[in-house]
Computed example of a mutant assay.
Amino acid sequence: MDKIKVLLVEDEDVLAMIIAETLGKRGFEIKIAKNGVEGWSMFNQLKPDICIIDIMMPRKDGISLLQDIRKVDEFIPAIFLTAKSQTEDVLKGFEAGADDYMKKPFSMEELILRLKSMMRRKIPGIITNSPVQEVSNKIGPYEFNHKKLELMFENSTIALSQREADLLALLLQHKNSILDRNIALLKLWGDDNIFNARSMDVYISRLRKYFVKDTHVEILNIRGQGYKLID
């Protein structure tokens, strides 16, 4: 099996070296960029399997870098590193397309676990106790194919990210009933903390936009409980 290629964009030399040495010993192939401009160039050359990006960097910050990456690759897993704990910074990262974040200082073992978890999610069918749907599922006039990461409406097809598809699959399993918020967070994010909860809200908002072509399909926010997909 080929090594997982990791692009690390981090301007702190010592931290970058520690991460590179640790991941290298665990079988990852890692390349380091020292700023966002270098990271963008290296991303296009390397075609990595996963990105680790520091938010605060010279020349081009991590959020701007990920926004550029998402224009050409919607699905590559990306994790932010941040020294800031403010909710708004984490939210900006999720809105830019981040899948996860870690606040400095962090455990190398935890980073490795999160990377492995994110790579498993990249492969269809890794929702706990939830096999991938190999056939299309009807959601009102839409057809959803979890395996292909596609949501179809008439003659148009919306390409979904793995996280969007996994979340929609959970909603579909609980169609017309409540999907418990904490259960969804634990299954997809592995933790129900406030930052992951805000991230899920961002993904719910994205999914709602995909269903605007038919007003009968709704994703309702059930206050204090979770979400309900109705069609």
Rank of each mutant, 00 (worst) to 15 (best):
N193G: 13
D100K: 12
S161C: 12
R163H: 12
L168S: 07
D214S: 12
I52G: 01
S199A: 15
R114N: 05
F80C: 01
L185T: 04
A98R: 02
D214N: 15
T82W: 03
I183S: 14
V217A: 04
E38M: 11
G190H: 07
D201H: 12
M17I: 08
L168G: 07
M42H: 11
I112Q: 09
F195C: 03
F211H: 10
S161F: 13
H146Y: 07
F106T: 08
E164K: 10
K147C: 10
L151Q: 05
N35E: 09
I63T: 03
A184S: 14
E29P: 03
F195Q: 10
K148A: 13
L172E: 07
I19K: 10
F43E: 06
P141L: 09
I194K: 13
S156F: 11
L23M: 13
G27I: 08
W40I: 11
L8H: 06
I76D: 03
L81T: 00
M1A: 13
G226I: 00
D73V: 04
L149I: 08
D201M: 12
K209I: 03
D192G: 06
E110A: 11
R208P: 00
F43A: 10
E10K: 06
K34L: 08
K103S: 07
G39F: 02
K187M: 15
G93N: 02
I50D: 04
G125P: 08
W40Y: 15
R70F: 02
K25T: 14
F94G: 02
F43S: 04
L188H: 06
P48S: 05
P141E: 11
E164G: 10
K31Q: 13
R114I: 11
L23Q: 08
K138L: 12
G226T: 02
L149A: 13
L66A: 01
I204H: 02
E109G: 15
N196P: 05
A16D: 08
F144W: 05
L8R: 05
L151W: 05
R208G: 00
K31R: 14
